[in-house]
Design a binder for these strands. Structure first.
Lengths: 142, 142
DNA sequence: TTTTGATATTTAACATGTTAAATAGTTTTT
DNA sequence: AAAAACTATTTAACATGTTAAATATCAAAA
């Protein structure tokens, strides 16, 4: 039998994400970046430079989308794009000064929201949820 | 401080969903429906008719997307679309015979996948995960 | 070395997500 | 009843998701 749409895992994951992102989106909009652009910037803020494949993997963005996002962010000088010597296929991306500034502006507001969500759901349950999700994600690799 | 992108709730929710849907997508593709089209069909399979607003809510699809999806599904005669007498604004959607057939074809394969995921993650953890997600979703309403 | 095969990125085409605005119909106010 | 406010759906515009194919480059095999 089909599961009820109410207690379907993919749908619950979708809705849960929607609830969290709804808190978040207005802040990103204020700073003129989409959710996906922000993911790219954040990943590069953690580690630069990264080649496109690594970046796509870490930001959970498919290659074709990444191509477009890179173009937009590079035009705004939020990231930089360079070639790898020794491998003409690959592209190296790095956070740019303007990107660093953006991160430092968004970071406090971002943290406040995460803290609020965590507080409302409960510290322990929050960690438990992350653990369970991690377990689900790891199924892919086995 | 910014959270690590590895242990970020929105990203974990996104990745977890991706892992589950990766199992699922090939089956839907075989039957020529997208993930979102399948959600619409499934919801209408549970209850028909529904007006567009209710349907959008239950399938977690935004109104503009639903408009396009309805058009596509109606053309393929998987669903039917009718007007409400007494309120000329609203549109009523219902599952069509072809849609029922599709559901009965996809259902067993769908169940098999859910069972497999549930088995691999563990029954108890699976239920626990759904409960935690539900708790997160309910934050919206408070 | 030339061919073959594999890899990284981009392009293409179409569906959906997202926000804002338009349209049409309904309800409430005055 | 006419105007104003509200509601349901659609349209518009642009970004992203998704799959397949095209390009360009590198690596391995013959």
């Amino acid at each position: 039998m089909l599961q009820s749409t109410r207690r379907s895992l993919p749908m619950s994951l979708l809705r849960a994400r929607e609830v969290v992102m709804a808190q978040f989106r207005p802040i990103l909009a204020q700073h003129g970046v989409s959710e996906q652009q922000w993911r790219v910037i954040r990943v590069l803020g953690e580690q630069s430079p990264l080649d496109a494949t690594e970046l796509a993997e870490r930001a959970s963005i498919l290659a074709p989308s990444l191509t477009r996002i890179i173009k937009a962010l590079e035009e705004r000088k939020l990231i930089t794009r360079g070639k790898v010597d020794g491998d003409g296929r690959r592209v190296m991306l790095a956070i740019a000064p303007k990107g660093q500034v953006l991160i430092s502006e968004v970071a406090p507001e971002s943290s406040a929201i995460y803290d609020e969500v965590q507080r409302r759901i409960g510290h322990e349950r929050y960690e438990q949820l992350l653990d369970l999700l991690e377990g689900l994600i790891d199924l892919e690799k086995k």
